[in-house]
Structure formats: structure tokens, C-alpha cells
Design a protein around this nucleic acid. Sequence first.
RNA 1: UCCGCAGUAGCUCAAUGGUAGAGCGGGUGGCUGUUAACCACUAGGUUGGGGGUUCAAGUCCCUCCUGCGGAGCCA
Length: 433
Amino acid sequence: MSRPIITIAELAKHAGQEVTIRGWVYNWRKKGKLRFIILRDGFGYLQCVVFRPEVDESVWETAVELTQESSVEITGVVAADERAPGGFELKVSGLEIIQIAPEFPIGKKDHGPDFLLNHRHLWLRSKRQHAIMRVRSELEFAIRDFFQRRDYTLIDSPILTPAACEGTSTLFETEYFGETAFLSQSGQLYLEPAAAALGKVYCFGPTFRAEKSKTRRHLTEFWMVEPEVAWLRFDGLLDLCEEFLSEIVARVLDRCTEDLERLERDVSKLRPTADGDFPRLDYAEAVAKLKALGSDIQFGDDLGGDDETLLTEQFDRPVLITRYPADLKAFYMQPDPSDPSRALAVDVLAPEGCGEIIGGSERSDSLEHLERQIAAHDLPRESFEWYLDIRRYGSFPHAGFGMGIERCVAWICGVPHLREAIPYPRLINRLNP
RNA sequence: UCCGCAGUAGCUCAAUGGUAGAGCGGGUGGCUGUUAACCACUAGGUUGGGGGUUCAAGUCCCUCCUGCGGAGCCA
């Protein structure tokens, strides 16, 4: 059989040749004896032309039956044509219907978010969602590659956990053979012991937060990448954040040009990030700057959403906010030796008002300090005994961070709401589909 | 949980307290180059549920439900 079955991505290699392509009808237009079928196959979009005088009458009759999202196998000659989107079109000679689809719920005009989310399984077929999923996939690959090439070991942390990382109020609970288990909200506590075993480790997986937050920046299930590095100090952690972000953004810019174009993303706003050299602001400097910009923030307050937006608008690349007041941050963070009221913590805020995408810190390596912190935070001491072992058996300086994948995807793609940055978003009042 | 906004055709939205309408999608017909094609015709409604005010309620009031935006919290 000489006629190859190809994907739309391989089209250019087959110019002038008769090929078969399998896919779905994305859209169609008719003009008298002409029918244009826009076919999508997951790899691209292709205009297929059926001209009645030039095809068998059976092919024409089949073409007339097609509806949006019907599945088909189309055969024809690949022809360069300036009038075709993408530069190539298919002169149809054969058309086989796999299935005629009934009226497709998602049309060409606008839809509301509730409707689209109810049809997320079908919404994924649209060009915009297709592009976002491609960027997400490339970003995740870039992240794994970043760590793999630097000799990190991937440690898959558990999803079912016996206790909280930062308290139980925001955890999903489930019955576990007569006990209570919680869905993990971070792999960090499990990574720290692994860092003692393997030096440089990271985890990459879903995490769960039962926070009743209803904003564009929150999901109840989201994916997080968390590196944890033995012997890494705070300054090294800041360098790691910068190197990491600049490299993965550069990679996506390089490999997802078409997708970012389809998303109408202004990539000039992302380029500075790829160069690194992120501004670093001490928390006190950040507060002073915000006050000068008109915020009513006081020293000791956490940065609000408006503050983050205001701050990121001052820079063309991510900004690192360092050394927060310790009581704003988690129990396991290392106090700043020059001022113990501050923690060696960093938040990375992405530009264009996107806000926090990374939170990290140097971890406390003192058993006594952690014991005091656990008591001060009213955490169940017995649940953390295993974690405290890390400070008993060869305590070591170490640091790490966590990055929310969806926030990074949303920023890179320029989509305003996290619900589009994950295939099947889980929100406070949405579990379906 | 709190504050604000909304709910009308399959979808997106109109409609001074006074005859419920358009675009898209569906159906029928027309057109040899369309780019969310276009043109003509056509079908399609318990105005989110319940209660109230009024001669008269999609519109005003109360209440519940659902969604959206924001706050807090975080990645």
C-alpha cells in the first residue's frame, strides 16, 4: 500500500503526494459546489477541499453529511496553497466517515466558564485549550529535564499521609482502614529525609488543599514540583530558583512558539525571564517599596494580592522576596541567624500581576528549634517524631522550594484563571467531569 | 466564611412595571475559494425554585439554590 497514513504535523514532507489523515471535523464551510472541511487530528489543523465536479458523487454526498466533531478518514493530495491556513490543503479524493456526531455543544461563539467547565472533556478539543495543554506538557518535561541533568533523584512522595505538613485544617480527610488519612498537601516532609539519603532530590506530583478559597489562583488539586537539596544554604536556594525558572521558561519559549502564538501571548514579556538576573528584595525593602507605591501594608503583614500585583508591575521578570517575618511562615523554616524574628524564606512572584509561583526556604536543622516550633504551632508532636529524626541522625543544612505548575503554566500562557491550566480542574464547588 | 454581581431559547446576551427578541448553533434552500464565510426562510421559551407587592412582574420586595468576581489563605 503506497498511500501513507500521516498526521497533520507531517504534512510538509508529503507535498504533492496522496495521503490519508484521520481526525475530527473542527469546522466546515460550504460554498455551492465547494466544501471546506477543517480537520484536526491532535497535531494540527488542515483545510480539506471537496470540489463537486472533481470527486466521485459518493464522496460529495458523504461530505455533505459531515457535522462538527464527526470522526473521519480523509484521503487526498497535499497541495501548497496560499489561500489555506497553514499554507497546505488537502484536495480530497476519498472520505470515510467513522462516526457522524450529533450537534456539538461547544460552538464557534463565546461560552460562559460554567458551561465550558461542565464540558471540559469536550472543551479540551478547542484550539486554545490544545495549545495550553501542549505548553503544560513541555513545561513539565523541561522541569524533569532540569533536575535530571543536574543529578537529582526523583522521589515520589506519598499521596495518603497520616498527618499534616502545616496543620490539618486545609486537608482532605479519608477513612483508612479504621484510621484517618489525609491527602498530601506537600511532599516536602518526605523529601527532607530523602535528601539525606540521596543528596539532591525532587518530587513532582499532585497535591491537595481543602482551602475554601474561591479565586482565580487556587485549585483544590494542583501539581507541584519540589526540589530539596542537602548542604544548600539560603543564597544558593535563591540562585536555584532563578536558574530553574529562567531555564524552563527559555525552553518553553524555544519549543512552543506555535502554541504561544495561538494563545496570542506577547512573548517579549517572557524573554527577560529567560535571561535570569532576577531582582531580589528583602521583605523590609519590599514593604518600604510598597508603602512608597501607596499600599497600606505594615511591617509584619503578609503581602496581599494587590501588593503582589503592585510589586510585580515594577519589574520585567520574576522578583524574589526574601526573609519574611518568621511568624508568617511555616514551622520548619530556618531562622535568619542575623535576626531570628525573620525566616530564611523566599517567595518568587511572577510578573504581569501573576503573583506567587514559588515558595521556599532553608530548613531548620536544629532539633530544639523544631521541637519548640511544633509546640508553638500546636502540632501533634508524635506525628512528627520521624521527621525530627532527620535532626537527630546527622543533621545537615538543606533547603528547597515548591512551585505550583498551574500558576507557572497560567503565567507563561497568559491565561487569567488556573482552571484553564490543568486538564481537569478541581475547584471548591467543582468535581466534574 | 464574608462582600459585590448575575441567572431569559441548546449557547452568548437584549427587553422604561405594559405584545419575550437578536446573534451563534439546529433544519431547509442558494452560491467555484471560504477563513468564526455569506444570503434567504424556518423551528426553538413554565424568564433558576418558592412566596409577596401590583390592574399588570423577566423587571420591584423577601427567601432559597446555582454560578461569577473579589477578600482571607496559599503554590
